[in-house]
Design a protein around this nucleic acid. Structure first.
Length: 653
RNA sequence: GCUGCCGUAGCUCAGUGGUAGAGCACUCCCUUGGUAAGGGAGAGGUCGACAGUUCAAUCCUGUCCGGCAGCACCA
């Protein structure tokens, strides 16, 4: 028999007969490794212990100590165990697919009656029984036809479809069993069901999901589970989920009295004074930044006749998602049909088109805090993060092709400065290149892509390639930031657009005296104020930095003899530009501290007899139980400096 | 939009085929208390909307509206 050369992680090479399995390799190394082995990594691929190795490769044997393969196997096998549990409880349920996902797995079932939360408990119980059976796992490679015949006979139509969908590229069709239960699965797997920890998984929820992700297909019932290596890790995960729930901007929005939403205006925000303070503070900041960044600010109409949307192409593509406004105009023969603007670009081209533009006017950076409305599907709405009425920090840069690169680099620096001011020190750039269906010449695509790539390089940043994900007319960049609990949000965007200037006939007079077509660069940092404020709230868990906090300082009296002094302090703080309020209610200081802490006021100044006598204040920071006693004037000037927005603070320094 | 769950006081939630309850918040009174809930009293609800079944519906049924989770969507 021919030899097989296997290279181990330490670099050593050993020969084995062709067809040796990782299990045999492990056994040849040591008795203990043979027992501890759960899978192998062969030539970079996750490999079942029982699969023969066909050719020379690198190999490492995995044990439960190797987190990544161990969790993969545990979650994967739990998906099978759950499917078996479901079919044992309800034999008429059809199985479909059940992949491993972040933190766990899901499995989609076809069943007429919905699963209830009680069912989840029953399924979990049954899963534990199956785990305790320690049934060995067995896999076999079958021919396509045998697998199809098998599933047709078993009455598993989805599996038949899956087998048919497996590409005919020599990929084996693997049949999987534990006990009498069977599934279609490419593996790899653990060796028996007892290797799965019975106390480190939990079924989380059941929800609808379309067969193969297509909304025209039958809707299945998806059960989600999470699993870890041990009970402690599961507990830690569940605790993390509770933490995330505590940050929910909808909950904090209510507790901090920032905004509300109601039935009459679904997907639209009623901003309360506190929330509007965050909004305007952020907008003021962006306005200053943009002005400094060479933008002019404009404002354009909300309600615009359909003819413009027809010209821009939005009417054809997004009519379903637009709010339509019909008006009976006295002199018109029929109703005038308008749409609330779903985006600002067509209006910006109208402003650009006023008067003749010279090449000397370019690049023209035109910004608008553009209020847009989109009729989003009801199921997509989510607090203030996904809404039907929102305002973008939108801008369009009109420029020549040779200016794209500089403008792009300039924008990346701009965005980077904004993100770091707002507490997000790092972001990722996604570079979306030409899609399969596209317009324009290859040369033009080459130039546009090169411009973006060179711009990124000029800033010294790296990027992730997103091939084929560009718009049909040009490439784009998306910017993703990571929040305090590791969630990734796509907010910023930079998109080249030769299309809309064409459609709306934007031109400029070049050096040659002839008319030319400008490029339009769509760009945003925050995306929408609504969504970004949601992200800020969740990122900071409501404890916004002082300059953004709606209520910056509460001056609380301890005894009513201090009331006059409390009012004086509050006035001084307010005069210094701080958002300060007095709390002279007939409540104990404990009560006041608790209440203002719960509503995330960053600074509480407590004032009793002593402070009155000494003209000092006792300062307490949110989240800190210590207090400091400071002179009044000192506190005012300290807080005034601290409350400066980052761009103004930088100017000062 | 689809599937499932949900809608009772400002908030969080009990509850019942005979028109409703708690805690917190609110108002008033007592209390002047030193850094995360002092005490007492009071007020507060078309039980999401509309239809149907019933002698009687907040409760049962249907339709609609809205919310939540996931899916689909996100110019």
């Amino acid at each position: 028999m021919a030899d097989l050369s296997l290279t181990f992680p330490d670099g050593s090479v050993r020969k084995f007969p062709v067809g040796t399995t990782p299990a045999q390799v492990a056994a040849s190394i040591s008795k203990s490794l043979e027992k501890a082995a759960i899978s192998a990594t062969v030539g970079g691929q996750h490999w079942d212990l029982a699969w023969p190795i066909p050719m020379d490769a690198t190999i490492s044997i995995n044990t439960m100590k190797d987190d990544e393969p161990a969790l993969e196997l545990i979650r994967h096998d739990l998906a099978h165990i759950m499917a078996r549990a479901v079919q044992e409880l309800w034999p008429d349920v059809k199985v479909t697919i059940g992949p491993v996902i972040e933190n766990g797995w899901y499995y989609d079932f076809a069943r007429d009656e919905p699963f209830t939360p009680d069912d989840l408990g029953a399924i979990e119980k049954k899963m534990k029984e199956i785990i305790n059976l320690r049934d060995p796992v067995r896999t076999e490679v079958w021919s396509r036809q045998d697998a199809i015949d098998f599933y047709e006979k078993a009455g598993e139509p989805f599996k038949v479809e899956l087998v048919n969908a497996i590409p005919d590229d020599g990929q084996p069709i693997r049949m999987y069993w534990h006990g009498d239960w069977q599934d279609l699965c490419r593996g790899p797997h653990l060796q028996h069901t007892g290797q799965v920890p019975s106390d480190a998984f939990k079924l989380m929820s059941v929800a609808g999901a379309y067969w193969r992700g297509d909304h025209r297909n039958q809707q299945l019932q998806r059960i989600y589970g999470v699993a870890f290596k041990n009970r402690e890790a599961l507990k830690a995960h569940l605790t993390m989920l509770e933490e995330a729930a505590k940050r929910d901007h909808r909950k904090l929005g209510r507790e901090m009295d920032l905004f509300h939403m109601q039935e009459e205006a679904p997907g639209q925000v009623f901003w309360h004074p506190n929330g509007w303070s965050i909004y305007t503070t952020l907008q003021d900041y962006m306005r200053r930044k943009q002005r400094a960044g060479g933008y002019v600010e404009i404002n354009t109409p909300q309600v615009v006749n359909r003819s413009l949307w027809e010209k821009s192409g939005h009417w054809a593509n997004y009519r379903e998602n637009m709010f339509i406004v019909e008006v009976d105009e006295e002199h018109a023969r029929e109703k005038t049909i308008n749409a609330l603007k779903p985006m600002n670009c067509p209006c910006h081209v109208q402003v650009y088109n006023q008067g003749l533009k010279s090449y000397r006017d370019l690049p023209l950076r035109m910004a608008e805090f553009g209020s847009c409305n989109r009729y989003e599907p009801s199921g997509a709405l989510h607090g203030i993060m996904r809404v039907r009425g929102f305002t973008q920090d939108d801008a369009h840069i009109f420029c020549r092709e040779d200016q794209i690169e500089t403008e792009c680099a300039r924008f990346i620096e701009f965005l980077s400065s904004v993100y770091s001011d707002l507490g997000f020190d790092d972001f990722e750039i996604m570079f979306a290149t030409r899609p399969e269906k596209r317009v324009g010449t290859e040369e033009s695509w080459d130039r546009m892509e090169a411009a973006l790539e060179n711009a990124i390089k000029a800033t010294g940043r790296s990027y992730t390639l997103d091939p084929g994900e560009g718009a049909f007319y040009a490439p784009k960049l998306d910017f993703k930031l990571t929040d305090a609990i590791g969630r990734v949000w796509q907010c910023g965007t930079f998109q080249v657009d030769p299309n809309l200037p064409e459609r709306l006939d934007a031109t400029y007079i070049g050096e040659d005296g002839a008319k030319h077509r400008p490029y339009m660069l769509h760009r945003a940092c925050l995306g929408s104020f609504e969504r970004f404020i949601g992200i800020l709230i969740e990122n900071w868990a409501g404890k916004l930095p002082l300059w953004l906090a709606p209520r910056q300082v509460v001056v609380a009296s301890i005894v009513s003899d201090a009331d006059d002094y409390v009012q004086e302090i509050t006035r001084k703080l307010t005069d210094a530009g701080l958002r300060a309020e007095a709390d002279v209610r007939n409540e104990k200081i404990n009560y006041k501290v608790r209440e203002h802490s719960l509503t995330k006021v960053p600074v509480i100044l407590a004032i009793g007899q002593r402070e009155v006598a000494e003209r000092t204040v006792s300062l307490r920071r949110l989240g800190d139980t210590r207090t400091r006693t400071l002179a009044l004037d000192e506190v005012v000037s300290m807080l005034r400096t601290e409350a400066l927005p980052p761009d103004l603070a930088a100017d000062r320094a």
